[in-house]
Design a protein around this nucleic acid. Structure first.
Lengths: 158, 158
DNA sequence: CTAATACAGTTCGTGGAGCGAACTAACCCC
DNA sequence: GGGGTTAGTTCGCTCCACGAACTGTATTAG
């Protein structure tokens, strides 16, 4: 494992950057009155509504966990359960007007802060970082979740 | 933000790698019968015992949160509260024999898995990644916590 | 040397989060 | 139309995190 110069190891770098991003997420959420889970839920819903099962797969949660999360978020007026027109068992969780607004703000602000993290790197270095880290996440097929909003996300369908 | 080619953005890369590492942490912990918080506590204690206040600063938790975490971990037989010889208000939280063993196993296994994540990169690329990410965490002075075991620790063997 | 203050930890009450097991209701389809 | 699947919820539990209030020791001021 290459790190004989004073440099930090890749494991430590990953672990600590994780810490960093977690903290940003939590704090940004907090400032918007959101837990990071609720913030995540809002972000996932930004492009379109989803069913509970879809959400639970996307977020990596048990369905019973999701019920609670949606309950709490709904209680805060940020999402709404709508009946699915094609399946009366199912439910579509959608952002309310307020939720939509808050999601946008939270998303923008959180991105801004995360983008700030590598501010000490040159544009080229940030690009390299994005490429390498991007390959890591692709190689490990991250559940495809989370802030998928980079764009290509919309094409995802059940 | 440079991402006009098909490449993922640096924000998305960071966010998703965070997801990845979180998952590794949680799963590795789970397989050792640990929550990630308890796993983290054990790791922090590997080099030496600490007082509650020190721990709460290192882990970024309120003191009252730490009491509970240590309680639960102690109940599992992994740590022990010892009186501080120099301050009878204070307490030193130390690993038990069992906790020490488990911490080592958890630590090694978790590192192994995290090290696995960038397996698709060449050695040189991993090194670059470590350098760039290392600068990011240094620039943002990560609370200096977490798996602190890397500092001198690369070749560390207690 | 006492009195005020600061500090170390705990307790208590609250709420979010996550899980599995058991359940209801709708769907599918043969 | 009956059996198996699927969508979601409910229930009971544990963990986690917080702030406020508290106990008791240390420290420092006067």
């Amino acid at each position: 494992m290459g790190k004989d110069d004073g440099q930090i190891g890749v494991v430590a770098a990953l672990v600590r950057s994780t810490f960093l991003v977690n903290a940003v997420y939590a704090q940004s959420g907090q400032e918007h009155g959101l837990t990071s889970q609720q913030g995540q839920l809002l972000c996932v819903l930004m492009p379109q509504p989803y069913g509970m099962s879809e959400l639970s797969a996307m977020l990596g949660l048990a369905k019973s966990s999701l019920t609670g999360l949606v309950d709490r978020t709904e209680r805060n007026g940020l999402v709404r359960r709508e009946p699915d027109p094609h399946d009366s068992r199912a439910v579509r969780v959608a952002l309310t007007r307020q939720g939509s607004k808050l999601a946008e703000e939270f998303y923008v602000e959180t991105c801004r802060r995360i983008e700030q993290l590598p501010a000490g790197l040159s544009a080229a270095e940030r690009d390299t970082l994005a490429t390498l880290l991007g390959r890591v996440v692709l190689d490990n097929k991250v559940p495809v979740i989370f802030m998928e909003l980079d764009d290509g996300a919309s094409a995802r369908k059940h």
